[in-house]
């Protein structure tokens, strides 16, 4: 990682508690303050681990699978989670989120992050309204243009909605590297609060331009595909954690991979997706305990590249 000084690193951890608990084997720390990060445009703090729903929450009308996802959501909120991200592109995921929200407790901290993924203003407005109904919420905290689709039209709509108080934050997302050039242009020219793109211990291209630009422009960063859609974690799990992972309170590979991401000063939140409660518990453990500094991050990247 370039240009990450210890001062910048410490400064970015504004919501991180000073106390940490000793990790229980396999789980990581389970008590102590959770890591929160500030949204630059307002200073509002949100937990650094969110919940992605691509594939995992697209379970159709299957009651058994819907109930299982509701349990995952319950665990997410019980462990201090807040930001849930979804999109009309994710099939039934939005409806499944709504199903879960209607059935679980302890969800007052929800930070709803929706997306618009369609062409034309009218269709976009209708789609966002449909999404709101699926979720069963009064308004979205964050509405993002998904994969830059018809972004110039939707950004204007989102600006209007934000001015009217119908959405609190607006943003742009992509999970495709070839769109980074276009994304950079939007980040330079549009008054967006959030941007989302892929970043993980192997795919670190965004450290060169997008992450520094987000920090410079005061744009919050949501990181998607932290595990390369499961490929990375499957590769890692065949190898033991390095002994020094304990120095940053990592008890499993999920925490190793997530702590690498959230320890970047420009990253606000990472949104791993899971369908399992035990995996959710592992993920949420990455919000507790010590985080890697710049030197340790370089060590983590080197180690991951050689696994």
């Amino acid at each position: 990682m370039k240009n990450l000084t210890r001062r910048a690193f410490v400064g970015s951890m504004t919501g991180f508690g000073a106390t940490t608990a000793l990790p229980a084997f396999g789980q990581g720390p389970t008590s102590g303050a959770i890591l929160k990060k500030a949204i630059p445009s307002t200073g509002e703090q949100i937990p650094a681990i969110g919940l992605g729903t691509w594939i995992t929450f697209n379970v159709g009308n299957d009651e058994r699978l819907r109930a299982a996802r509701a349990q995952v959501m319950q665990t997410f909120f019980d462990r201090g989670g807040s930001l849930i991200d979804s999109s009309p592109m994710y099939g039934s995921s939005e409806a499944v989120i709504g199903y879960g929200l209607a059935r679980i407790k302890n969800k007052a901290t929800l930070f709803s992050a929706g997306k618009v993924w369609i062409v034309l203003k009218t269709l976009g407005v209708n789609q966002m309204e449909a999404s709101r109904n699926y979720w069963g919420i009064e308004r979205f905290d964050l509405m993002q243009v998904h994969n830059l689709l018809d972004w110039s039209t939707h950004v204007e709509t989102l600006k209007e909605m934000k001015a009217q108080g119908r959405v609190r934050y607006i943003g742009i997302t992509t999970s495709q590297g070839w769109r980074h050039g276009g994304l950079e242009q939007i980040m330079r020219t549009q008054p967006i609060d959030f941007v989302a793109f892929s970043y993980n211990v192997i795919d670190r291209e965004v450290e060169e331009r997008l992450l520094p630009l987000a920090a410079e422009r005061g744009i919050a960063v949501i990181v998607n595909r932290p595990f390369q859609e499961g490929v990375l974690i499957e590769r890692m799990m065949h190898h033991p954690l390095p002994p020094w992972a304990g120095e940053i309170d990592c008890a499993n590979w999920a925490q190793f991979l997530l702590k690498f991401i959230v320890s970047h000063p420009a990253v606000t939140c990472v949104i791993p997706a899971t369908r399992r409660v035990d995996h959710m518990e592992e993920n949420m453990g990455a919000m507790r305990g010590r985080l890697p500094d710049a030197k340790m991050r370089r060590r983590m990247a080197r180690y991951a590249e050689n696994v």
């Binding site: 594939i55 697209n58 379970v59 159709g60 299957d62 699978l65 099939g91």
Partner: peptide, 17 residues
Amino acid sequence: MRSFPFTADVYFSLFET
């Protein structure tokens, strides 16, 4: 390739419905 919107389990669950 993992970028597919659903799993086999969900696919067969859909057939059941």
